Simulated assay, not measured.
Amino acid sequence: MSQLDCDVAIGYNLLVVGATDAGVHDMVTAYLEEPTTTRLPPSFLRSNQKPVRLANNRLIVLDIIERPGDIFRECCGDLVRCHGVLLVYSPTSAASFQYVVRFHEQMIRSKWRSLPVVLFANIPPRRGVKQVHGCNGRSFADAHAIPFIEALPGRPSPVPFTVLLDSARRHHEASTSPTSFGEGIIDFFTVAAAKVSHAARSHFPTFPTPHASGRTA
């Protein structure tokens, strides 16, 4: 096992929701399978996790929680532990757009109304007649002050995940709530030696650092 040249921060949970015809599974799969330059051993990651290198050379591990077609109350358990929500709809399905509109309305009426949200207009594998134009998505996003991204034809883009991660990091790093998730910076070998369990990594608790004075802001 070779020494990593950066710290490992554990990490962020991103919840991806959308109607069954919004192409959620395909876009999540494409993002998770996208090549990465990180050197984490495969045994460290589960199938729904992805290592991401930040600009400051730190690594974080994203846990992508995929919930296509589930209604709001079925996602409450995931909302408890997630750091941001990606709302996905297909421009070829008016029903998928109404799905994310309703989901967001229920979010803002709940205790999770402050969670970072990104709206994404996805291009599903089966294309059809456009029923929801970009101006509709942008109007909804502008009304609620959330980022809006439209997919471009061709290879799936990691942009919606990157934007949501940036929003989640800003939100949770600025939060002073004692119940908020914080980044626990730990040495990789500390993680490996502790044999972090499936459940622990799934919920991403804040791990103590070996030396408190060495923690970076």
Rank of each mutant, 00 (worst) to 15 (best):
R81V: 07
E34Y: 15
L115A: 12
T176Y: 11
S90R: 07
A143Q: 07
S180Q: 02
G128M: 04
C82F: 02
H133T: 14
S180Y: 07
M107N: 13
L32K: 10
V28W: 15
A199N: 14
F44K: 03
T162D: 06
P35Q: 09
F181V: 12
F204S: 14
A94T: 05
P125M: 08
I71K: 11
S202E: 02
H104K: 12
S139F: 08
L152K: 10
V61R: 00
P68V: 02
R81L: 13
Y99K: 04
V88G: 12
K111E: 13
I149D: 05
D5P: 09
W112G: 13
F97L: 05
H198Y: 07
L79F: 01
A30K: 06
F189K: 12
I60E: 15
I149A: 04
T190A: 14
S93K: 11
I10Y: 03
A174I: 10
S177I: 01
I60W: 00
R201E: 09
F189W: 06
E105G: 15
P42Y: 00
I71F: 15
F44M: 05
M107H: 03
L87V: 06
R109N: 13
V16R: 05
F72K: 08
P158I: 15
A168G: 02
V100R: 00
Q106K: 09
R53G: 00
T37P: 13
P153K: 08
V118R: 03
P178D: 13
A193T: 08
T37V: 14
S197Y: 08
G23S: 09
T162Y: 08
P42Q: 00
S213V: 04
R81M: 08
A192Q: 13
S2M: 07
I123F: 02
A193K: 14
D78E: 04
A200W: 01
T92C: 07
V196S: 03
T92P: 08
V85Q: 06
C135S: 12
D166A: 04
S139M: 08
S213F: 06
N13I: 00
V16C: 09
L62D: 01
Q106W: 02
R46I: 11
E66W: 12
G134H: 12
R109L: 09
R155C: 09
L59Q: 00
A22L: 04
T209H: 14
C76G: 01
N56M: 07
V129L: 15
S110Q: 01
G137R: 02
H104M: 04
E183T: 07
S202V: 00
E173L: 14
V24A: 02
L15M: 05
K195D: 06
L15V: 07
V8I: 12
R127H: 06
Y12L: 09
H198I: 03
M107P: 05
